[in-house]
Amino acid sequence: MNNLDEILKQQMQDFAPDAPNIWAGIEQGMKANASAQSGVAGSKVVLSKLALTVIKVTAIMAIPASVATFFYTNNSKKENIERESKVSELKVPIAVNSPEISLDKTQVTDKPKETFTNKEKYVSNNLIQTQEAYINDNFIEHKLNVENKQQEGLSNRNLEQTSTPVIVNDIVSNPTIPEIDLDDKIDSIENIENNFEATEINKNESAFIKTPNVLTPNNDGLNDRYVIEIEGEKLFNLKIYNFNNELVFESNDKNFTWDGVSQKTGQACNSGIYYGVLNFKFINNDKLQTQMTKIKLIR
């Protein structure tokens, strides 16, 4: 019965019939999604704008109202005490002007207390001055913040600098990085000549890479081991994933051979589709390149 599973797997894992062309539908769906998202975002913006205007209006309405009530109550007291009609006459224009000068309620309500006995000009001037001072204060605070942040950044950098040796040690102790691999270091002197040859090849011909797409580990001498032929590379990393995206093999050595055994479990991999992901750099090109190969493993 397991025979059936194997047959189905081998036959159907790379089942790729001619697909109907539905790109137009996909594009439409994508657009609909995008517009739905932007629509939501747009309505949010509209809402927030509306809310802002409402707040502004209420603030503007509230300020003169509060100021007026404040003055009204104070005036009535003043009138009771001093019975000065001039002061109350002077206060009316302040109430009208104040919202244009300031939207901050605390300032408006605080200021008249101090300047109540002063005349109109002084009041309005003081308001403007205090506002300017407020803005300046804010600005200074902002500046201070920025400076603090910069200082923090500097101190962070200092920390990083002090902590770098630790990281370097980590890298040295990690054998998976090919450049610092001890074996590589021993070979490096010998490799220099080879590498020079390789660069020469690159200048004349082009660097080449050959990735087979089948592996039959049955000891018949044909495709028993998976090898990649690559010439003129300076960085090499191969990862082989199984059909369910699980890593089964990884190598940084271009002379690797894979006989269809999982590195993780040590067990022979079942037949089926595997994916080889090869990351490499050629000597004459600093760009990291990726090549994917579908490997069919048949046992």
């Binding site: 089942f15 790729a16 019939p17 109907p20 996909i26």
Partner: peptide
């Protein structure tokens, strides 16, 4: 990407 993979994915959908 659609052009490169649609056959494979259609196979899955058909299955």
């Amino acid at each position: 990407l659609y052009e490169l993979t649609s056959k494979q994915m259609y196979g899955i959908c058909l299955r």
